[in-house]
Design a protein around this nucleic acid. Structure first.
Lengths: 335, 335
DNA sequence: GTGAAAGCGCTAACAC
DNA sequence: GTGTTAGCGCTTTCAC
């Protein structure tokens, strides 16, 4: 055994000795202060500060089985949907005293599983955002450790879902009121739960408002694909408005249209989803807004409850969406 | 003491017992396999797999003092400059067997210090990207633990710097060749190392090419500020081209110009910095490009070396920048 | 090449 | 309210 106590590293014994008390008392001063006389706590705290003592989390974890850590795993941190979510989740975790591990699975379920495996023993629970793993794998994980899902609907696991129904309903109604009769939906990855929800919501709303709907599939949902789909969108002769799977696609489409000199919204209205671009496009993008930061915050809250055995039931927390009308939507052109 | 060994949780003893050997051997099979007979290693590995054994990192950390974790701390994960950097750093760390903690300081040096304090004992080292802490604090931290800086130039600490000189030099030359004589620089936060470098580079290049330079300060560098600065930019009568602190500001400026019907690049050329928007604006933004992902990867590499005592000298790794000319720059208008 | 045993720093019974 | 003490699961000297 190497005694690594050489440089720095103040430990509990140092504080105990300095205070002339036992290590147990020092320990309690940190974890259960209410058990001690206030003066004792104060003394310990003072000395600890003075010496620069900080409880060793590894030792604490070993003894208690609680690490004070959680992990957030997501497919691609560079996708603008995730940073706000991650930011909120990490802030909430921090406020609750947890530190957070980040795992970027790079859109790969194998990598995702590996990452999770590597982190399991160091965390009390996981937040899985848009997981790429199979339901089976996720359920298995959930049996071993607290898990909260974001945008994945598996009964039995606490989950936060962003429900596009209202926002898309409002979008379609907005278009309908502007006189649009023929619209298109540029869809995202078939495997994506979010895309399934969005596509379904568009269909339902169009039926309700008696609009004719065309659907255009896209590969990887990003700016480039959005730009590339422009021709196909324009080929849909009577279509006067487009709703896209997400903002990146809408953004790409806007660029494609601008390159061709197509006036938005005069010639074509465009609506995005996620509202992560804010007003940063020109014209500013009308989008179905979702509080993705709220999703992150909520996910942590659910996890926190799970960690304190307050999980209990089958929690399915649904976040609403709404329409933010900006500059890319206008009256239907008259052919 | 509560024996929490009830459910699951295979530990080293289980494997040792199953193999009919000592825990020491099992331990070595994982950390020093070359010390053992190959057959022994194979046996242990097989059994461990079978039982689903995974060494407990906390116990290991307690015993060895190495946690296999690092932390990346940054001011705002929602700033588009950071996700690619974070992504690359985390990927590199993962490949080297490290797990990564994420700390978002929310642009606040106090929070940053608190986060770091909470993480210190759980990590072997830190990557501080665009730290908001004082040099003194950072140096102090560096004395206790391996630290690598990104975009912060403190002698004695390993650091990765994105040097805007070449890129901005090329940008100014590009403008000069297009016939621009009067240009403006919309500057970022005075406290930002990056802004200092960029401003200096613009000044120097303008002197070289005999261009007249005006500087416009901005508050928080983001889209909104960029849009708000539009009037002031237009008030600079003879100015025909603008370089902005970063892409967000450029993006906002483009929006502000478009709202006023100012044609880019015919009436005004615009160049951003960081190139994080890709070709996603319209017109596509000419920008000074920097491999921020490379900065993340490199930072981890330096940290990794530090962790293995190969840090040695005063490492100052400088990344070059270059110009990506797209659609927002063109010949100077003739007044 | 392998085992026995002493810790790593902390917490939690259990006494007092 | 506070101290004593036995671990938490792992690694690492020493022996052999």
């Amino acid at each position: 055994m190497t005694p690594r106590r050489s440089n720095a590293a103040i430990i509990i014994d140092d504080v105990a000795r300095a205070a002339g008390i036992s290590t147990a008392t020092v320990s309690r001063a940190f974890s259960r202060p209410h058990m001690l006389r206030p003066e004792t706590v104060a003394l310990v705290r003072k000395l600890a500060d003075q010496l620069g003592y900080q409880p060793n989390p590894a030792a604490r974890a070993l003894s208690t089985g609680r690490q004070g850590n959680i992990a957030i795993v997501l497919p691609d941190i560079a996708n603008p949907f995730f940073p706000p979510l991650l930011r909120a989740a990490q802030a909430a975790a921090d406020a609750a005293g947890y530190s957070v591990f980040l795992g970027d699975s790079d859109e790969n379920s194998t990598r995702e599983a590996r990452l999770i495996g590597k982190l399991t023993m160091q965390v009390e629970g996981f937040i899985l955002a848009s997981s790429r793993m199979t339901n089976r794998k996720i359920v298995e994980l959930g049996e071993r450790q607290p898990v909260v899902l974001i945008n994945r609907d598996i009964p039995g696991l606490p989950r936060v879902l962003i429900d596009p129904a209202k926002g898309i309903g409002a979008a379609v109604e907005h278009l309908s009121q502007l006189g649009h009769k023929n619209i298109a939906y540029v869809s995202g990855p078939a495997a994506s739960w979010s895309n399934q929800q969005r596509e379904y919501a568009v269909e339902k709303s169009c039926a309700k408002h008696k609009l004719r709907l065309r659907t255009l599939p896209i590969g990887h949902p990003d700016f480039e694909s959005g730009r590339e789909i422009t021709e196909k969108v324009l080929a849909l002769k009577r279509v006067t408005a487009v709703i896209t799977f997400d903002d990146s696609v809408a953004h790409g489409l806007l660029a494609g249209l601008a390159e061709r000199g197509i006036d938005v919204p005069r010639a074509l209205s465009v609506i995005g989803c996620d509202d992560v671009l804010g007003a940063s496009t020109y014209p500013a993008l009308t989008s179905v807004s979702a509080r993705c930061d709220e999703a992150g915050r909520l996910a942590f809250e659910l996890l926190h409850k799970s960690l304190n055995d307050e999980g209990g039931d089958d929690i399915r927390s649904v976040l609403d969406t709404w329409l933010v009308a900006r500059g890319t939507t206008g009256p239907a052109r008259i052919d």
